[in-house]
Every structure is written in C-alpha cells, then in structure tokens.
Design a protein around this nucleic acid. Structure first.
Length: 593
RNA sequence: GGGGGUGUAGCUCAGUUGGUUAGAGCGAUCGCCUGUCACGCGAUAGGUCGAGGGUUCGAGUCCCUUCACUCCCGCCA
C-alpha cells in the first residue's frame, strides 16, 4: 500500500462506507461555514468532498490552508444524507470525515486560479502551464490525446504494422519548409537538420524489406504558427507499406479513421467510405484542395455566359475578353433576404482584398428576371442558361466573382464558408471525410515561372511509368492524395516513385541535375538502385486529429507544453542565449542582424 | 515581412464627452456563520492603467513611437 494513499480521489463510493482511508491531492475548493468546513480534494482521477467541524482539534489549522495546497487526508468514508448527494460527482454519494491530515507541499499565491471556468491570457497559461494543466478541460484533452495515440498504436499493430524509430538528427533537404539546423561539433561548419518528416527514412525502411512501418513521429518545420499549427514541432502518424497501390493504402487508412472517430466521438461520420475528389474537381467546385463537405454550397464556372450578346454586364465582359474567368455560388431561397445580408457579404469580400462579389436573385413575376444591383444586365434567356449551368431555381441567389483563376478560387472558397456560416448551413455534429486525389506532379511558380514539384518529389507519376511522356509536365498527375475532414487537411501521402531513372527525369524537369539529386538525396537514390519494392504511405497529423476529436479550435489546447506564436517556450525560456564557450566548440560566431 | 484585435489589482473584467481620491467579481488576509458543493455575510490589503514621448489647466481616456500576447495573409514538399 502507498504511504500516501489507499484510494484515489475519484473512486470512493458507498461500497467503502465506514472504511478508514487515506487520500492525497490538491485542495480544489473550500466551503467554510466557520464551524464546519467542506474541502474538495482533487487528483488526476477525480474529486472527493472532505468534511471537518470545529469539534476536531485540527479544524483551525486545516481551515487556514490555501487552495492548491497538496494535502494528505486520513479519515472515515461517510454516507451523505439524501438531500446532500452531489450527482455531478462520481464520489458524490460519500464524503470523507477528516481525522488526520498532513501537508505534503505548500503553494505561493496562485498567478492563475485552477478552480475556475474563466479564460486566461495565453501568456499566463503558457508561463504557468503546470497550473493550467491541472484544470479540468485541458487535463482531459491531454488524457484524450494519450488515449488516441494508444488506440492508434494498437490498431496499427492489429493491421500488421511495426513501429520503428528514425533519426532526429539528419540532413537538410532542399525541398519543402525551412529546416531547423543543428551545428555539428565533430564536423566543423557542417549542420544536421531536424526532420521535417521521416520521409526518406520510411522509404529506406521499405527498401530494407520491413514491409509495413509506422511511427508516431515528431516532425520539425521552422515556419510561422497558426491556430491549428504549432511553431516548430508536431506529430504525425507516419506509415508506409510495400507492394501496394493507392487503393491498398486507402483501405487501411479508412478503416483506421472510421474506428478511431467512432471510438472517441459521438458525432456521426457523414461517409464511412470516404468520397474521392480529383484535385481539379475540388479546385473547381470548392476553390480549395481541402473542401469542407459539410457545406452544401458548390461553385460553378459561368465564364461562357459573359460572352453572350444579351448580357450587358460590361465590367465582367471586358475582363472575360482579356482572359478572366467568372465563377459563382448559388444559395437556395435567399431572394427575400434583407439587403443587409447581401451587402454584408459584398463588404466582407471587399475586405478580403477583392473587388467584391456581384450578386442577383432570380425572380419570376410574369417572366424570369434578376433582382439586385447587377440584375438588369441579364436577359431572360441568359438567366435560363445560368440556372441550368448552376442548378439554380426561382428564389435562389447567385454570387459571382471575376478575375484570374487563382483569385477567383481563393475568394469563392472563403465565400463558400462565409455564406454557409451566415445561412447556418453547416452541421457541427458530423465529421465529413474525403480523399483528394490525382494531384498534379508539377506546378508553375507564379513569381519565378519555374516548374516545381507541387507536393512531394518522391511521388509516383500516373501513366505508363516505363515510358512516360514528359513533354507536358504540368499535365502530369501523381499518385498523391490528401485526407480532409471538415475542411481541415489531416494528412497527405503518395505512392512513391521507386524507379531511379524516372526520378532523375522528374527532378530534371524541376531543375535538379543528376549530380544535384545524387548529392541532396544520396541515401534515397542510392537505395532505390538496389531493388526497391513498390511502396506508398501517408502521414496523418496527430495534433489535428486530436483537435477534431476534442472539438478544439486551437492546437495549444491539445498540446501539453506548446510554444507561443513567436516560437518561444515561456515556461522554460526557450530559445535562450548560450555561452560563448558553447559557440566556440561549434565553430559558430554570431552575425549582426 | 504585412494587416487586424487585445493590454487597467494576483486572475477575469468595467471605467461615460478628457474632469474630484481609478471600480466590481474571484483570489489573498482578518472576523462571523454546522450541510455546502460557484456556500453566505462583513472588513482589510493589493494599481508604474504594458512602456516611452507628446497635446492639454488636467490623460486610463486624444496623438506619436515602442513592447507583449493573439488572429489572419505571406510561408507550411
């Protein structure tokens, strides 16, 4: 038996009535009646009400103890009177009559009350994270995170995957995000990089014949933070399989996600067989490659309408002649909405930096007509064509954006969310997964006009890979896929290119010579030359999965010791200055800004 | 790198058009209270109004600069 306790603060019930027990925990709350004191003792497992009255010698001493004192209490388990039972507590039918106590640790005045539903500033929460983490909600989020990770591990093992560790100190790679660098003492002037993902290693594991790999892998990227993106580090469920095609990966991953989300959430899954949306279709219908399918609104292209002679919307028509496109969103039964609704959306669009969203509603008094600021520019015939193209009916409203493809996609993608929120179209009680597939292998950098890998340079292009036509690289699709849930990108993956000759050809298109590839990806390219199995995988983000299941909007709510937005740990004071001696050993001198 | 929001007691916040000695709740300290579970009641302490500068007879309030936190854009194969 423990020196400190016979039971935890969450387990005593009427079954323990009249037993003499010992509890240890923090003073969560006191209710002091002067001659009678209630004291809630809290530990990881729960809360137990302890009680003492002035009849006891120790009453005065215990009455003075401040909240969050760590206390050991010895006493008898008493049944509560019927009308004093607390149904909100597991231990609510009993209380402990305090006979002895011992202070295990005292506390200074709290910078942050533990017992409170108040919200605190991020600064104080992160500085005193150990106090913040005692609080119910975040404590439970962290427990949930642990359970999710355990569940994932056991599922993966069930599917025949084995967990392997990969190095944390590795080499910098030219692709992708900014690296965190670590100077090498033994190799002056040279640097390790922290892995942005164990991408090359997991492929090497496949080449090494291990067949099915997974890892709850830390990943490091030196990029700026967002609410759903920690600065610096995050975790992925990294997995890779040999002798598979895209379909084989999908089967495993869908099973994992369905089981996981059913286990940890009561929200419904909109699809247990995740819809597959080609990248091009996603960009057209949703304006983004991470569509929120809970949102029923879809985007349609109506550029052709503005080439008609009976449409007089000159601003758009001129832009269309110059090569702009027009796309729109239909909202159902909104023609009677007040003017403020439409103006609000138009104003929002202008605040987004666009020229706004043109709109009209379709009416039918004697004949079809369009109501709204630009309605008068559309003939009855042109309205009929729009209605067919956009699947719109009388009473619906059409919001339109004109510009180049990237601008229009971006604005309408945001407008889709904005309008759906305004109209309350999103069911918060479902998870809606989908796959986005058929990503382009390459894309054009808008600024440099150079062709670059659009995602992962190691992805396998689609088509006959023995004799692939690379004359139009921008049309080449890859076996590259993403999982999206409720508009959040959870992971991306690919079938990998295990053919070194093909890989050299692809890298050449992106401007990497054979020598450069050999230098920068030596481990990989060398390994592929010695019999690499066809393989592929994916890497879902653990933090975002936990966010979805915990229903949190901020990643810090599911991270035990997060950094702030400026990538500082306010509790540990990281990053910090180091001694000149340390720098010297590393052959590093500081450079003026 | 750019844009928005916030910053007043240990914590969460209020503070009018610029006008007396800057307030409340929680917490702390002290006192009263025997069935509370956000216990109740009374008192006390606690303030560089983020910092610096300016306008003004007078600044928490207006102006400028700056710092911190946060959200977004860029960035994130």
């Amino acid at each position: 038996m423990s020196k400190y306790r016979t039971h935890t603060c969450g387990e005593l019930t009427l079954n323990n009535k009249d037993q003499t027990i010992k509890l240890s925990g923090w003073i969560n709350k006191k209710r002091d009646h002067g001659n009678l004191l209630f004291l809630d003792l809290r530990d990881h497992y729960g809360l137990t009400q302890c009680v003492i009255d002035e009849g006891k010698k120790i009453f005065k001493e215990i009455e003075k103890l401040p909240l969050e004192t760590v206390l050991q209490v010895e006493g008898r388990v008493l049944a509560r009177e019927k009308d004093t039972i607390n149904k909100n507590l597991n231990t609510g039918e009993i209380e402990v009559g305090i006979e002895k106590f011992k202070i295990l640790a005292t506390t200074k005045e709290l910078p942050l009350p533990v017992f409170s539903d108040q919200e605190y500033s991020e600064e104080i929460r992160l500085k005193y994270r150990f106090l913040d983490l005692r609080r119910n909600k975040i404590h439970n989020n962290i427990i949930l995170r642990s359970k999710i990770i355990s569940f994932i591990r056991s599922e993966m093992q069930k599917y025949g995957f084995l967990e392997y560790q990969t190095p944390i100190l590795t080499s910098s790679s030219p692709e992708g995000a900014r690296d965190f660098l670590v100077p090498s003492r033994l190799n002056p002037g040279k640097f390790y990089a922290l892995p942005q993902a164990p991408q090359q290693f997991k492929q090497l594991i496949m080449v090494s014949g291990f067949d099915k790999y997974f890892q709850i892998a830390p990943c490091f990227r030196d990029e700026d933070a967002r609410a759903d993106r920690s600065p610096g580090e995050f975790y992925q469920l990294d997995l890779e399989m040999s002798f598979v095609e895209q379909e084989d990966v999908f089967i495993i991953v869908e099973e994992l996600f369905v089981n996981l989300f059913k286990e940890f959430s009561s929200k419904k899954l909109l699809h247990e067989k995740f819809p597959r949306i080609p990248f091009d279709e996603a960009m057209l219908k949703y304006g983004t490659d991470k569509p929120d399918l809970r949102n029923p609104l879809e985007i349609a292209d109506i550029t052709e309408i503005f080439k008609r002679d009976d449409v007089n919307f000159e601003i758009f028509k001129k832009l269309v002649i110059k090569g702009s496109i027009v796309r729109g969103i239909v909202t159902k039964n909104t023609s009677e909405k007040p003017r403020s609704f439409f103006d609000g959306i138009d104003k929002w669009a202008k605040d987004e930096g666009s020229s706004g969203l043109a709109y009209f509603s379709i009416e039918n008094s004697e004949k079809l007509s369009a109501k709204g600021p630009v309605g008068k520019f559309f003939s009855e015939e042109s309205l009929k064509e729009i209605m067919t193209k956009m699947n719109a009916e009388v009473g619906d409203t059409i919001f339109m954006s004109c510009g180049n493809k990237v601008e229009v996609e971006k604005l309408l993608s945001n407008a889709r969310n904005r309008i759906a929120n305004e109209l309350n179209l999103i069911d918060e009680n479902v998870f809606s997964f989908c796959w986005v597939v058929d990503y382009p292998m390459f894309e054009m950098d808008e600024n440099t006009k150079k062709i670059e890998f659009s995602h992962n340079p190691f992805s396998m292009p689609q088509g006959n890979t023995d004799n692939l036509d690379l004359s139009e690289p921008l049309k080449l699709k890859a076996f590259q896929y993403d999982i999206v849930c409720n508009g959040i990108e959870l992971s991306s993956g690919a079938i990998r290119n295990h053919k070194p000759d093909l890989m050299y050809r692809l890298f050449e298109i992106a401007g990497y010579s054979k020598e450069k590839v050999n230098e920068k990806f030596s481990g990989m390219i060398n390994a592929l030359s010695y019999g690499a199995p066809p393989h592929g995988g994916i890497a879902p983000g653990i933090d975002r999965i936990v966010m979805l299941l915990a229903e949190e909007k901020n990643i810090r709510e599911v991270t035990m010791f997060p950094m702030n937005q400026n990538a500082q740990d306010l509790m540990m004071n990281a990053p910090s200055e180091v001694d000149e001696k340390q720098l010297k050993e590393l052959y590093i001198s500081k450079r003026k800004k």
